[in-house]
Amino acid sequence: MELTAIYYLLPALFMFCCGVYGFITRKNMIAMLISLELMLNAVDINFVVFNRFLYPGAFEGMFFTLFAIAIAAAETALAIAIIINIFRAVRNIDVRSLNEMKF
Protein backbone atom coordinates (compact mmCIF):
# COMPACT_ATOMS: atom_id res chain seq x y z
CA MET A 1 0.00 0.00 0.00
CA GLU A 2 1.36 3.36 -0.99
CA LEU A 3 1.02 6.20 1.45
CA THR A 4 -0.72 8.99 -0.52
CA ALA A 5 -1.46 12.50 0.72
CA ILE A 6 -4.95 11.56 1.82
CA TYR A 7 -3.55 9.36 4.59
CA TYR A 8 -1.99 12.44 6.12
CA LEU A 9 -4.72 14.91 5.34
CA LEU A 10 -7.58 12.96 6.86
CA PRO A 11 -5.99 12.71 10.33
CA ALA A 12 -5.08 16.38 10.06
CA LEU A 13 -8.70 17.22 9.24
CA PHE A 14 -9.80 15.10 12.19
CA MET A 15 -7.35 16.96 14.43
CA PHE A 16 -8.63 20.31 13.17
CA CYS A 17 -12.26 19.39 13.80
CA CYS A 18 -11.37 18.20 17.28
CA GLY A 19 -9.68 21.57 17.86
CA VAL A 20 -12.73 23.49 16.67
CA TYR A 21 -15.05 21.34 18.78
CA GLY A 22 -12.88 21.77 21.83
CA PHE A 23 -12.55 25.50 21.33
CA ILE A 24 -16.30 25.92 21.14
CA THR A 25 -17.40 23.61 23.89
CA ARG A 26 -14.75 23.73 26.61
CA LYS A 27 -15.26 26.43 29.20
CA ASN A 28 -11.81 26.23 30.75
CA MET A 29 -9.48 28.66 29.06
CA ILE A 30 -6.46 26.34 29.31
CA ALA A 31 -8.46 23.68 27.53
CA MET A 32 -9.42 26.22 24.86
CA LEU A 33 -5.76 27.08 24.44
CA ILE A 34 -4.93 23.39 23.97
CA SER A 35 -7.69 23.13 21.35
CA LEU A 36 -6.21 26.13 19.58
CA GLU A 37 -2.80 24.42 19.50
CA LEU A 38 -4.46 21.34 18.06
CA MET A 39 -5.86 23.40 15.18
CA LEU A 40 -2.49 25.02 14.56
CA ASN A 41 -0.73 21.69 14.45
CA ALA A 42 -3.30 20.32 12.02
CA VAL A 43 -2.54 23.22 9.72
CA ASP A 44 1.20 22.62 10.12
CA ILE A 45 0.74 19.01 9.03
CA ASN A 46 -1.13 20.24 5.97
CA PHE A 47 1.76 22.54 5.06
CA VAL A 48 4.30 19.75 5.28
CA VAL A 49 2.09 17.30 3.39
CA PHE A 50 1.34 19.66 0.53
CA ASN A 51 4.99 20.56 0.26
CA ARG A 52 6.05 16.91 0.29
CA PHE A 53 3.53 15.68 -2.26
CA LEU A 54 2.95 18.62 -4.57
CA TYR A 55 6.42 20.23 -4.72
CA PRO A 56 8.86 17.51 -3.71
CA GLY A 57 12.02 19.51 -4.42
CA ALA A 58 11.03 22.60 -2.44
CA PHE A 59 11.31 23.44 1.25
CA GLU A 60 9.07 26.44 1.72
CA GLY A 61 6.32 24.50 3.44
CA MET A 62 8.81 22.93 5.84
CA PHE A 63 10.30 26.24 6.81
CA PHE A 64 6.92 27.82 7.09
CA THR A 65 5.95 25.11 9.52
CA LEU A 66 9.09 25.65 11.58
CA PHE A 67 8.27 29.31 11.89
CA ALA A 68 4.64 28.57 12.72
CA ILE A 69 5.77 26.26 15.53
CA ALA A 70 8.07 28.91 16.95
CA ILE A 71 5.40 31.56 16.79
CA ALA A 72 2.81 29.22 18.28
CA ALA A 73 5.15 28.65 21.24
CA ALA A 74 5.51 32.38 21.80
CA GLU A 75 1.79 32.89 21.44
CA THR A 76 1.09 30.17 23.94
CA ALA A 77 3.39 31.83 26.45
CA LEU A 78 1.53 35.09 25.92
CA ALA A 79 -1.85 33.42 26.27
CA ILE A 80 -0.78 31.69 29.49
CA ALA A 81 0.40 35.01 30.87
CA ILE A 82 -2.96 36.59 30.04
CA ILE A 83 -4.83 33.70 31.60
CA ILE A 84 -2.75 33.94 34.79
CA ASN A 85 -3.51 37.62 35.02
CA ILE A 86 -7.18 36.98 34.48
CA PHE A 87 -7.08 34.38 37.23
CA ARG A 88 -5.49 36.87 39.60
CA ALA A 89 -8.16 39.38 38.80
CA VAL A 90 -11.31 37.26 38.94
CA ARG A 91 -10.12 34.04 40.69
CA ASN A 92 -11.52 32.03 37.85
CA ILE A 93 -10.58 30.94 34.36
CA ASP A 94 -14.05 30.11 33.13
CA VAL A 95 -14.54 31.83 29.79
CA ARG A 96 -18.23 32.52 30.55
CA SER A 97 -17.29 34.76 33.40
CA LEU A 98 -15.39 37.07 30.98
CA ASN A 99 -18.34 38.79 29.36
CA GLU A 100 -17.53 42.35 30.30
CA MET A 101 -16.67 43.28 26.70
CA LYS A 102 -20.15 43.57 25.31
CA PHE A 103 -22.31 46.34 23.93
Binding site: I24, N99, K102
Partner: peptide, 11 residues
Protein backbone atom coordinates in the same frame (compact mmCIF):
# COMPACT_ATOMS: atom_id res chain seq x y z
CA UNK B 1 -27.56 41.35 21.67
CA UNK B 2 -25.34 39.57 19.15
CA UNK B 3 -22.39 41.18 20.86
CA UNK B 4 -22.81 39.23 24.07
CA UNK B 5 -19.24 39.24 25.30
CA UNK B 6 -19.15 35.41 25.06
CA UNK B 7 -16.14 34.55 22.92
CA UNK B 8 -17.41 31.12 22.09
CA UNK B 9 -20.58 32.58 20.63
CA UNK B 10 -18.45 34.65 18.32
CA UNK B 11 -16.57 31.56 17.26
Amino acid sequence: PLQSGQIQMYV
